[in-house]
Amino acid sequence: MQTTLRTPEKADYKAIAAWISDKKACSRWAGPSVPFPFAAANLPELLAVEGGSSYCLSDSNNRCVGFGQFWPGKHGAVHIGRIIISPEARGKGAGRLLCEKLIAQARQSTGASTVTLLVYLDNHAARSLYSSLGFLVIESESTHDLLFMSSTANR
């Protein structure tokens, strides 16, 4: 799959909005600060994080097949989140491509060697992906339903 990591455009937010089917899915993806339902046009503002950057993974036809963000984390780390893949692209490696490219962009943009993320305990596919990318669970930062994971680049 030939993909590019790029800044989201207006049409991308409309596509992303269509991937969110209900209030629970919205909360698990974007957190409690993003209401459901929402207008796709409002997503850039609703997803804004101070110091953060948003990216789309686009396919060879420039269609958005994934979305993710990064922002300043604790102790000089960069935190990635709000990762989502289009239903049509799931299970085809798009999640791995998005994460690899997003992590590289986050490290390059911020100079941080450590990347952190949160993942739901019951999201086995995401947990497996993040573990395969070198993320380790930090128990002291995790809760009963959310795992805090961290990965440090080899310097």
Rank of each mutant, 00 (worst) to 15 (best):
Leu147Ile: 00
Tyr120Thr: 01
Glu100Ser: 05
Gly134Glu: 00
Arg90Ile: 04
Thr110Lys: 06
Ala125Gly: 06
Asp145His: 14
Glu100Phe: 03
Arg90Lys: 04
Leu147Ala: 06
Trp71Thr: 03
Val119His: 01
Val115Ile: 08
Tyr120Asn: 05
Val78Glu: 15
Arg96Thr: 09
Pro87Cys: 07
Gln105Ile: 03
Gln105Arg: 15
Ser131His: 14
Gly68Asn: 01
Val119Ser: 02
His124Leu: 14
Ser109Phe: 07
Gly73Ile: 11
Gly95Asn: 04
Arg82Tyr: 11
Gly68Gln: 06
Thr143Tyr: 12
Tyr130Pro: 09
Gly134Trp: 11
Phe70Pro: 05
Met149Phe: 02
Phe135Ile: 10
Ala125Val: 12
Gly66Pro: 01
Arg96Asp: 08
Arg90Thr: 04
Glu139Asn: 14
Phe67Asn: 08
Met149His: 06
Cys99Pro: 00
Val78Asn: 15
Ala104Cys: 02
Lys101Asn: 14
Thr110Gly: 06
Lys92Asn: 15
Trp71His: 07
Phe148Met: 01
His79Thr: 14
Ser109Leu: 11
Gln69Ser: 09
Phe70Ser: 07
Thr110Met: 05
Thr114Phe: 07
Glu100Lys: 05
Gly111Ser: 14
His124Tyr: 11
Thr110Leu: 13
Arg107Gly: 00
Leu133Pro: 09
Val137Tyr: 06
Val115Phe: 06
Ala104Pro: 03
Ser140Phe: 10
Phe135Cys: 12
Arg127Asp: 06
His144Asn: 15
Ile80Gln: 12
Pro72Ser: 13
Ala94Cys: 15
Ile85Asp: 02
Arg90Asp: 04
Val65Gly: 00
Asp122Glu: 11
Ser132Asp: 13
Leu97Glu: 15
Phe148Arg: 00
Glu88Met: 11
Arg127His: 07
Thr143Pro: 02
Leu118Ala: 09
Leu146Met: 12
Ser140Thr: 11
Ser128Cys: 11
Leu129Gly: 03
Gly73Phe: 00
Gly95Glu: 02
Glu88Tyr: 09
His144Arg: 14
Tyr120Gln: 07
Arg96Asn: 13
Gly91Thr: 10
Gln69Met: 03
Ser86Glu: 03
Leu117Trp: 03
Ala104Met: 11
Leu121Val: 02
Met149Cys: 04
Leu98Ser: 14
